[in-house]
Design a protein around this nucleic acid. Structure first.
Lengths: 198, 198
DNA sequence: TTGCGTACACTCACTAGTCAGTATACTTTG
DNA sequence: CAAAGTATACTGACTAGTGAGTGTACGCAA
């Protein structure tokens, strides 16, 4: 029974997402993805030109939902900016405690594909991180920080550092340490913005 | 003419190091390493039990030299602690500008081997990062910071975050941003230690 | 009845690891 | 001290399996 092409495609991406995130890009074969999606490799190649295309689709599918989740953590908290930042990193630590957690899919993909500079998945990863940084910057600007862009960048560095350290040491407390640093950096900056906008 | 075993072993590790760092663990075959070392795969398997052993040897060989380099950056600077930190991250940015730079070998290996929890290479990676953190903590304690361990951890988070962001965006300026954050965190802490030690 | 979506069976290159055997150097023994 | 034996360091050819990607045929829907 031929299904709607978009539905099948989504099923393939969902299978790829589970496997690529869980085991890594190179560790997962196209056959594995096809089997998990419940169809043959030939069908997969009908919907995707190559494995590289599939990898790019995997990260593209993770972009928006990830940002919604992280910003959801932030916006769910009623309180000061530092309260919100604390929540973000606390939630990150919570994720890190889950047995199926395998770090940041974007960073791990960047690490694996480092030798193929123009790869669409790498562009997707870079764009994703920049979007997240911009979201932070927007929140920081609204809260009146003097240099919201700089602070957003610093928080992103702590964010990615926390991912890396949690992965390296399998210890979620690194996320909390990162949260403390983020709070401290932002606290030192508060309320200066009123003088700014000339 | 049979050579000294240690010499050959070192040549294999050197070849593995170049290839694993340059292309990634899974992207490099045992044949590739053997060819680069100028011997046959069978000889490589005479010196190493498995590819996993070779991976572990690769990271083990990078541990000490890496720490010496980073701490060398720090100790080479005559000046305040913040001057030293600025230098560390500036040197990091300089590395990132090199065309052969491929991020942090330890972090990339951790990302690739994430599905094999007990892997000796992962332990080596974790131990390496902890050692570097301890080196920072030692310097911070000597400089009189109130909580050198916490600050060292925060600096390591920025350090690994800078690696990740530089790799993601191919932009060394992230290391400089991380350096600014590190300096700010440490500056807020200075000289409190005199009151501490009860 | 066209063409979209699917499956089976296949290619060919590559992968970790092994088998059996060899040349050289060191050690033991008559 | 010379011959025989043994450990060391090494090789080429191989196995058994996996990798991405493809040629072709078939069924179903509009």
């Amino acid at each position: 029974m031929p299904k709607n092409a978009a539905v099948t495609r989504d099923r393939i991406v969902a299978a790829a997402s589970k496997l690529f995130y869980g085991h890594g890009i190179r560790a997962v074969s196209v056959d594995d993805v096809a089997a998990r999606a419940g169809l043959t490799k030939r069908t997969l190649y009908y919907h995707f030109r190559s494995k590289d295309d599939l990898i790019a689709a995997y990260l593209a599918a993770r972009d928006e939902p990830t940002i919604v989740i992280v910003m959801g953590w932030m916006d769910a908290v009623q309180g000061t900016l530092t309260d919100k930042l604390e929540a973000v990193f606390a939630q990150m630590a919570r994720l890190g405690r889950h047995p199926k957690w395998r770090g940041c899919g974007f960073l791990r993909t960047a690490a694996e594909l480092v030798t193929t500079p123009g790869h669409p998945a790498l562009k997707a990863g870079s764009a994703h991180k920049k979007k997240l940084e911009a979201e932070f910057a927007g929140r920081f600007a609204q809260a009146g920080l003097a240099d919201p862009d700089m602070r957003a960048r610093q928080v992103m560095l702590l964010f990615d550092g926390a991912f890396s350290a949690m992965l390296t040491h399998r210890d979620p407390s690194y996320a909390e340490a990162a949260g403390q640093a983020a709070m401290e950096l932002v606290r030192g900056e508060k309320v200066k913005a009123v003088k700014r906008r000339a």
